[in-house]
Amino acid sequence: MLELKGLQKSFRSNGTVREVLRDINLNVMDGEFVSIIGPSGSGKTTLFQLIGGLQQIDAGEIWLDGVNISGQKGHIAYMPQQASLLPWYSVKQNIALALQISHVPKSTALKQAEQWLQQVGLAEYANEYPHKLSGGMSQRVSFLRALLSPQKLMLLDEPFGALDALTRLHMQRWLLSIWEQHRRSVLLVTHSIEEALLLSDRIIVFAANPATVIDEIKVPFARPREGELWSDSTFNELKQRIYEQLDA
């Protein structure tokens, strides 16, 4: 699916060079959920910009389904930290837009959007505009828009970071339930160790200044994930392992 080979990225400003990413190697397999966790400023968002073709890499290659897509746009679905819904479109129209981009006729796209909103409990908001939605509702709509995009790989850039703790937990469980049904390939950036352990098949741990891969953890818990996971001894051992790496 996705393979990053020796990615390097530096930024130059006022005669100084700041190395952001150094020799990043990682992959995401078909239907796999992989999380990247690291300190603030460790280059995680920059990495997403490189994968999406919004920044040019200094060295290395980005491969998707056996094709070198380095520097190219349009190959991934993206869910940002903020929902970024079009305010002049209704909720239904925002979701339908993802289908229309993949050449689904408008009438069909709107009908499918209504069906999806029914599935996720937001049918009553179909004709409302984004300003009427709570933060959690907006993120549900944003996730559906990414899920319905034609690209097979989804990049989620800390999508729940702005939500309160309880809403965030509800959104994590909601995302898991939707993802279990469709198993799209996902690469998630998060600052939450618990979130990474709850959602992921594998976790990539970054060090900062510059970002390098310092650990790769295969999450051992069976799917579907249960609520009791929080009290599991292995869960807490892995949580402590990651915390110590980030705190080093």
Rank of each mutant, 00 (worst) to 15 (best):
A165D: 13
E228W: 11
G161M: 05
R202C: 07
L238Q: 03
L229N: 03
I217E: 05
T234W: 00
F160P: 01
I178F: 08
I214K: 06
L163Q: 06
E216C: 12
A211W: 01
P224H: 04
A208R: 11
H191T: 02
A162I: 09
L176P: 00
E158W: 15
L188I: 00
G161T: 12
E228A: 13
L175R: 01
S200P: 08
R225C: 02
A207C: 07
L169A: 12
P210H: 09
H191D: 08
R173F: 08
K218D: 13
L229C: 13
L199Y: 02
T190S: 14
L166S: 01
F206N: 07
I203P: 00
A211P: 01
R184E: 14
G227V: 12
L187P: 00
I204R: 01
L238F: 03
E195L: 12
L156W: 03
L188S: 03
L169N: 12
I204G: 00
S231E: 10
I193M: 05
M171N: 06
D232G: 11
R183W: 04
H191I: 05
E237W: 00
E180C: 04
P220N: 06
I214V: 15
W179R: 09
I217F: 02
I178C: 11
L156V: 06
E216S: 13
E194G: 14
T234A: 02
A207M: 05
T234Q: 12
T167Q: 07
T190A: 10
L229K: 05
L187I: 04
R202E: 11
V186S: 11
T167S: 12
S233D: 12
L199T: 02
P210T: 11
L197G: 06
E228Q: 13
L197Y: 03
K218F: 09
D201G: 06
T234M: 06
E216I: 14
L238I: 04
L169H: 11
I193E: 02
P159F: 09
E158A: 10
K218R: 12
T190W: 10
M171L: 15
F235T: 09
P224V: 03
R223C: 03
A208D: 08
H170N: 10
R173L: 10
I193A: 07
L198I: 15
V219K: 02
R173N: 07
A211T: 04
T212L: 08
F221V: 02
A162E: 11
R168N: 08
I203V: 14
